[in-house]
Structure formats: structure tokens, C-alpha cells
Amino acid sequence: MTNVLKVENVTMQFGGVVAVDNMNLEVNKGEIVSLIGPNGAGKTTAFNVITGVYAPTNGAVYFNGTKIIENHPQGKMKKLYKGENNGKYSSVLAPTPDKITKMGIARTFQNIRLFKSQTVFENILIAKHLRRTSNLFTATFHLNGKEEAEMRKQTEDLLRILGLEDVKDEMATSLPYGKQRRLEIARAMATEPTLLLLDEPAAGMNPQETEELTAFIGRIRDEFGMTIFMIEHHMDLVMEISDRIYVLDFGKPIAAGTPEEVQNNPRVIEAYLGGAVDE
């Protein structure tokens, strides 16, 4: 199996609103894949399903060939369900977000969510908690000195590799916007994922910051051999670093392919690029 992530017939319906409609997509090892589409197309919702925030109404998600999420219409959704493939899935597999992170899928948020009262260093150090081998007792009585030192060392290393070393003792929220975004990505990386999901990492950035971010994401792929699945609106960024692109409209992928293929796809131009290119 080369695909790291496989989303299969996923439908996410909120009451009567179908936010993600029978989505099928794959992300292969080492790729940078982008998910684009107009606002409200269901991109963030797709991420929320993959990371366990919402159990899908129907469908399944596979990670490294293993099924990690599955659901089918239940309860009141039995009647309300408007999607396809009803009846194809029968079991329920709905891990919470922390379990998904443990499996190796890390994410960032469209609206930055840093730990406000903590420094840059502490923000990243927290991500090391999930790989602990100490328990409440050994941690409280500081019998895990070696592990604690290792956590701190890994945090230092990551900060250095990702160029955040000089701000490590600053409060996370006092950083300039662009650096906060980078810190959030660094924090996700600190959970030691094999798949990184980025939700609009360049949102609100000026062209210079966007350019730096492009290099930053490229570096993460090269240094860590990371597979990256990214939602993004900045077309320069998307076209420059994506290996493949999925275009979403009204919850449905309407096109997929390399940046060139997508750019020249008439349906895409009509649905999305036509309006967004000159923004």
C-alpha cells in the first residue's frame, strides 16, 4: 500500500445540510496534496472527519491501509440521510481526535489555536506528552528524568530545525502572525506524525510571509519525509508546491490532478478559479 490516507465514500451531514458529499480521495506517501474549493465547500469538515472531531454520517477512512474510521447513518440520520452508498457500511469505528493523533495524523487549525498562556517552547513540549512512557506517579515524583530530558531535547531540536529557536522563550501569542502559523505547524510536527493536515496555513498572510511559508512547508517535506494534505486558498502556494490537487465544490470533489491539469480544467475554472484567481 502506498497510500497513506484514503477517504472512501465519506458523507458528512449536519441535520439537513450535506457538508461533505460522498468524498473519495487518496494521499500517497511523500506527496503534498492540496484540497481547494470555495468557502463553505466542506474542506474543514473533511479534515474534522479525518481527525475524529466528527464521526462521518456514512463512509470510511483508511490510514496506512488500516481502517481507522467507519460509520453509517444511525438514529435520526437514518431518515434524514441524503447521501449515497447507504447500506454499504455496517460497523462503527469512531476514535476521538487524541487517538487519531496518536496513530500519526497531526493537524493545524484554520483559526490558529495556540496555548495562549505558554511560551513557544512549552507549546511544543506539550506535544511530547502523548509519546510518554511515564505514568502519573513517576512523572509527579520526577522519576522520569531521562524521558523529561529527552522530551526537552527533542523540542529544542525541532525548534532549531524549523527556525523558531530565537523566539523559544517568548509567549506564543506575542509572536507575529506568520510565526504563530509556523509554530502551530511545528507543534503538530512535534507529535511525530506520518501525515500532516494543514488547514489554510497561509490564511491572512502577506505575499512575503506566504513565500516564507511555502519554503517552510517544502522543508518539512524534505527534512522529515512528511506526507502533507493541505487546504489552501493562496493559488501561488498551492500551484508551486502541490504534487496533486483535489477541487471541492458543495462537498463533492469535482476535479483532481496535477496543478497544470486542474488549472486547465473548465469545470474548475467555472466553479472556483474564475473567481479566486484575481482576489
Binding site: D98, F109, F115, S117, L125, I126, H129, L130, T191
Partner: peptide, 19 residues
């Protein structure tokens, strides 16, 4: 540190793998 993370932002804490 995990407690403080939960205090600051539950959603982010959970995404960091904190149960």
C-alpha cells in the same frame, strides 16, 4: 503541562493527543 493545555484550549489539546 497537559492540564494547562486543556485549560488554554481543549480542542487544540485533544489534537495534541491529550485524552
Amino acid at each position: 503541562r497537559a492540564f494547562k493545555a486543556i485549560r488554554d484550549d481543549e480542542v487544540a489539546a485533544e489534537a495534541m493527543g491529550i485524552n
